[in-house]
Amino acid sequence: MTDTLAPSTPAAPVPAAAPTTAAPDPMRPVPFRVRRVQVETHDTFTLVLTPPPTAPRFAFRPGQFNMLYAFGAGEVPISLSGAPGPGREVVHTIRAVGPVTRELQRLKAGDSVGVRGPFGTAWPVDEVEGRDVVLVGGGIGLAPLRPVIYALLARRQRYGRIVVLFGARTPQDILFAKELERWRGRFDIDVEIIVDRASPGWHGLVGVVTSLIPRAPFEPGKAAAFVCGPEIMMWFTLSELKRRGVPPACLWVSLERNMKCGLGLCGHCQMGRFIVCRDGPVFPWEPVAPWLVIREI
């Protein structure tokens, strides 16, 4: 194993799932059925969707996203948050923050939602085999990382230590709380949760997620880190990971921009020389870092 990894550069993006799993026309939404709705927190929910019976099995790789179309309201890019690989269920965890996501929040079992995808690059779970893997999520940023956790645990022996560091606003905002608790009970994964603001009765950690990094149980020189959350949080997290000694070439982030077509055609999500929906959303940190400090983009 080398000290650094060849990142999956945007110039050679990780290909999306096999074409057989996507709609024939990637611009045409396929009506999926809402199988169930899971309330996660006061503003976050999970939609479990099933494709039409005639559609091929849906497959995706951790980090990819779908365009979800709430009929009559609009379309939004939403990361896949369920287990990767082929299956009959398509899982999205969504925070209701705008008109489209609020419309999606109103959906009930049996309703329809338009789906295009999967699109974009994936977390390089194969490339980091043999390494300690550190996943740092903030807020809804844990959702795109959950498929990674499933993937790593499914092939647990291929990785070193697996560390999940999760920051939430308050204890009531902790996403996938039961699942995190279950993972905390395992001996082969370290999970730490920290909240920005404590409420009465919370006896866990209080502070920012970056404060977990100095004492997290991983070997920096042999580690790779995947980070997803608000951009400010990612900046501080990345500098703390670098300070701890994780090689910069072993850092990946998931970025969010104004994605519209999902195919790199319309240019709405352009960030410098990158088209986020096509070259991302998962990027190696080094090439995108200089662009993130340019205010105009």
């Binding site: 606003r169 920012v208 959350g229 501080f236």
Partner: peptide
């Protein structure tokens, strides 16, 4: 400085909704 950075991040409420 580390604590100050952390306090700034907490004040920014980065996980909150900012319409």
């Amino acid at each position: 400085v580390q604590r100050l950075d952390a306090a700034s991040l907490q004040l920014l409420d980065v996980y909150g909704t900012h319409d």
